[in-house]
Design a binder for these strands. Sequence first.
DNA 1: TATTGTTATACTCTATAACTATA
DNA 2: TATAGTTATAGAGTATAACAATA
Lengths: 151, 151
Amino acid sequence: MAEQRQYEELARQLSAIGAVKRDLARVLPVDCPPGAAAVLVVLDKHGEMRIGRLAELLAIDMSVTSRHVAHGAERGWIDRSADPDDGRSRILRLTRAGRALIAELSDRYTQALADHLRDWSDDDVQRLSSLLARLRADFGDCRATTTRTPA
Amino acid sequence: MAEQRQYEELARQLSAIGAVKRDLARVLPVDCPPGAAAVLVVLDKHGEMRIGRLAELLAIDMSVTSRHVAHGAERGWIDRSADPDDGRSRILRLTRAGRALIAELSDRYTQALADHLRDWSDDDVQRLSSLLARLRADFGDCRATTTRTPA
DNA sequence: TATTGTTATACTCTATAACTATA
DNA sequence: TATAGTTATAGAGTATAACAATA
């Protein structure tokens, strides 16, 4: 169990990490905002799925996910075919164009990270990824157990 | 120098970390949005300063910083007094109320992190903070060297 | 009646550009 | 003329709530 000071420092670092994400987002093509790119990344890694599961993996609301997917579908990156098992759902799949795009995005992300993290060892990159994954898992567990309090 | 796979994984984790930040933000009082809270945190840690430096530390544009500060000043958390050395600037300081608020926020952040990271060792918390700080530093170095390309 | 998605609305964050005041 | 800060505008992300269709 860590001290208060360490938690405060972690909170500060998390709050500041947005700048890195914004920098990274600059490698994206203009018609592919970060939200839409995140959808492609997950579909590429995990394969076809319904939108509910996609929202779960992205850890954002289904309504938001729906809009990101619509964006990608309109541009021909994502195919939404009927779900034979449930008429309410559709199965999301990357199209050929979608796979080409995500390959391109992946290259650009990698290039940008490789440029900036030139001095990082394999282990450091690995360690950061692991810690972030763990952080996310340990928060996701008890989602929505806290509420904003009045001033 | 890490492999492409590792960079892709890191990019994924960074993209997903927003959910944790949103969870954490729920502990904030309703009239103190995350941006305003971040300003208080920095003023508390680094002491009085001008808005230009504040923007630098927050890694966001001065125009945005200005609005967050105005929010805090309107609520009596931040005092903006004239800068004796430069008539264009003002010196930002936490008021007594501001110090009370940031103490409260710090407690709440700490509590939330302690709840969720119950199983984390001191070292893990420390390591994550350090890696995030380093990530931020290595990106901040070459800000604005990349540009969004057309589709 | 409950669940899966979609859409409408509203809020926060951010950057760019135009503008004011001072150096 | 250049710099510090403010304000207006626009774009992106998010959640909540209302709604449609199906289970």
